[in-house]
Design a protein around this nucleic acid. Structure first.
Length: 212
DNA sequence: AGCCAGGGTCTAA
DNA sequence: TTAGACCATGGC
């Protein structure tokens, strides 16, 4: 079986250096919520009126219903509007200053994010990595299925997270790249009906037996 | 026309 | 502690 580092090297070689999220931490936080259980194409449909004025002050000035309307194309607008408002309030406690956030202990920040309604483990870790450049490995459904196909077996997401963090260097760039590369791999080749023909993992992937 | 998105929360057992 | 229902829209 490949090591987790070898898997990374293979992904990097196959798909190249991933594109990172936006620089603006607040924009990353909002988009991390909007993309929950939806596609990126839906997030891009976020009303331009919101996209242009996207800032904590503007969002907090909106009524809940107005915010819901702006993000409607992303689905689950009630829940997501609530989560975005919660995140906005949290960020304001740090003066909307990414640097002020970043100097706090990672575990404390993670606990604060998880305490917000509508923010679960995946979204919290996405925010820590892509908005604040802190090393907290992101586990999502793609990661679960990808590892399973390669023959790894885990009892929980927490176990997967611990495995990656215990094996790899504690490096934000590496964590962020890894998550992005798995996503890219799964979207392009590892869907319900995998495209296994030129897959870099074809020789050790369980899906090949089903989809030769 | 009917399925699916690959998240998070709440409830029931 | 875990499994299943539920949220809502857009794309295929």
């Amino acid at each position: 079986m490949l090591t987790i580092q070898e898997v990374y090297d293979e992904l990097l070689q196959s798909y190249g250096k991933p594109q990172w999220w936006a620089d603006n931490p607040y924009q990353v936080m909002v988009e991390a919520v909007l993309v929950q259980h939806t596609t990126w194409s839906s997030v891009k449909k976020m009303r331009p009126s919101l996209k242009d004025k996207l800032s904590p002050v503007y969002v907090q000035s909106l009524q809940q219903e107005a915010l819901e309307e702006l993000i409607r194309p992303c689905g689950f607008q009630k829940a997501k509007a609530r989560a975005i408002q919660a995140l906005t309030g949290w960020f304001m406690q740090y003066g909307c200053d990414g640097t002020a956030v970043r100097i706090q202990p990672l575990e404390q920040l993670r606990a604060e994010l998880l305490a917000l309604h509508g923010i679960g483990a995946e979204t919290a870790d996405v925010i820590l990595v892509y908005a604040f450049r802190l090393p907290s490995f992101i586990v999502d459904a793609y990661t679960r299925n990808f590892l399973k196909r390669l023959g790894f077996s885990f009892a929980s997401d927490a176990e997967i997270k611990g495995f990656f963090e215990g094996t790899l260097h504690k490096d934000t760039e590496l964590y962020g790249n890894y998550h992005w590369l798995i996503l890219k791999h799964c979207i392009s080749r590892c869907k319900k009906t995998p495209v296994c023909g030129d897959c870099p993992f074809a020789s050790q992937c369980a899906a090949v037996a089903i989809h030769p």
